[in-house]
């Protein structure tokens, strides 16, 4: 069951990133992917009897997740201020 849940979250997150045109929704897809990885680490820790190590790794992932989400939301807002839209297709016109 846990394998199905992890796969479901991975597929939902990857599909969201590939298909969406909204920057906020792309960040939500990244969040779903990170949640799948967190769940995978906790499940692996539970199966091997090393829950303490898995918990410490999961806490590290969660902290990095919140920083990634906040910084990405800030970048999305910055793009919105510059272009007036959250459409990722506008980023194709960037230099570099």
């Amino acid at each position: 069951m846990i394998a199905f849940l992890i796969l479901l979250l991975l597929i939902c997150g990857a599909y969201c990133i590939v298909v969406t045109r909204s920057m906020i929704r792309a960040i939500i897809g990244i969040e779903l992917l990170i949640k799948a990885v967190t769940l995978l680490i906790i499940a692996a820790g539970n199966m091997t009897g090393r829950t303490a190590t898995a918990q410490s790794l999961a806490i590290t992932i969660i902290i990095i997740e919140v920083v990634v989400a906040a910084t990405a939301a800030g970048i999305a807002l910055w793009v919105f201020k510059r272009t007036g839209t959250l459409d990722v297709r506008n980023l194709r016109n960037l230099k570099g």
């Binding site: 539970n46 999961a58 902290i63 919140v66």
Partner: peptide, 22 residues
């Protein structure tokens, strides 16, 4: 899955803080 500390972090940070940021 017997990981209460990570569960509390997940609930408070991911369900709370990240939702507020979004």
């Amino acid at each position: 899955l017997e990981s209460p500390l990570a569960a509390v972090f997940e609930l408070s940070v991911c369900a709370g803080l990240i939702t507020a940021v979004f």
